[in-house]
Amino acid sequence: MILDFGDGFFLRQATVADHAALAMICLKTGDAGKDATGREDDPDLLGLVYTIPYQVLEPDLAFIVDGPAGACGYLLGAADTNSFNARLVSQWYPDLEARVADPGPDSSRWRGSDWLRHKIHHPDFAVPQALAAYPSHGHIDLLPQARGKGIGRQAMAFLEQRLAASGSTGLCLEVMPQNVHALNFYRTAGFKVLQDVGLPNRCIYVAKQLGFAPGVAG
């Protein structure tokens, strides 16, 4: 146990044995915080893209939230987004590309998880310049049984402390525009919504400065 949240909930390091749990939680929260099971035809694919590679490539910043009924959330981070993305390209995505077929560019013909299969074959790992002051990124998702208990707030504070101790000057996260609950959570946790023409409009970026960086406004 790394952090005790009370009522039988706690944070612990994620291991290889947690890959199935990471995929399950990602699927159950994969539709802007809601259950994506009915949308996806490959229940493992979301996890293989968005959660499991963190445990493999950045294990020191990969954590599971456990509760009385087992795994019910995760907290994931990458200390340096550019470095992490480079490792995804060289060490992770080749096997993913071999696992699934490219559904082609016509999105009108996509079904089920085809949108994700297309993303796997046509990834975009470029980091916008607007995120330069926030070199680290993270992900957190909790199943319903772990929500409303202050777990998210405590977990994010823990990740911020870990990243700051490693020398990171800032943390950013992506939020789907329709996930109003998550946006409110991050605002309450001290994150600001970034506004910049150089940022993609598919998601909203929230960010927080973790340490003093000369010439960078907080």
Rank of each mutant, 00 (worst) to 15 (best):
G6T: 11
F9M: 06
F10R: 14
T15I: 10
A17D: 15
A20W: 05
A32D: 13
A32Q: 08
A32H: 07
G33H: 05
K34S: 11
D35I: 06
A36N: 08
R39Y: 00
D41C: 01
L45C: 04
L46V: 00
V49A: 00
V49W: 01
Y50K: 01
Y50G: 00
Y50A: 00
P53Y: 04
V56H: 10
D60Y: 02
D60L: 13
L61K: 02
A62C: 08
A62K: 03
D66I: 00
D66M: 15
G67Y: 04
G67I: 08
P68A: 12
P68I: 06
C72Q: 07
Y74S: 03
L75G: 11
L75S: 11
L75T: 10
N82Q: 15
F84M: 10
N85P: 09
Q91C: 10
W92V: 06
A98Q: 15
R99I: 07
R99S: 12
A101F: 01
D102S: 10
D106S: 12
S107C: 10
R109I: 06
R111A: 13
G112T: 05
S113K: 03
R117N: 06
K119D: 13
I120Q: 04
I120E: 04
D124T: 11
F125T: 04
A126P: 00
V127H: 03
P128T: 04
P128C: 07
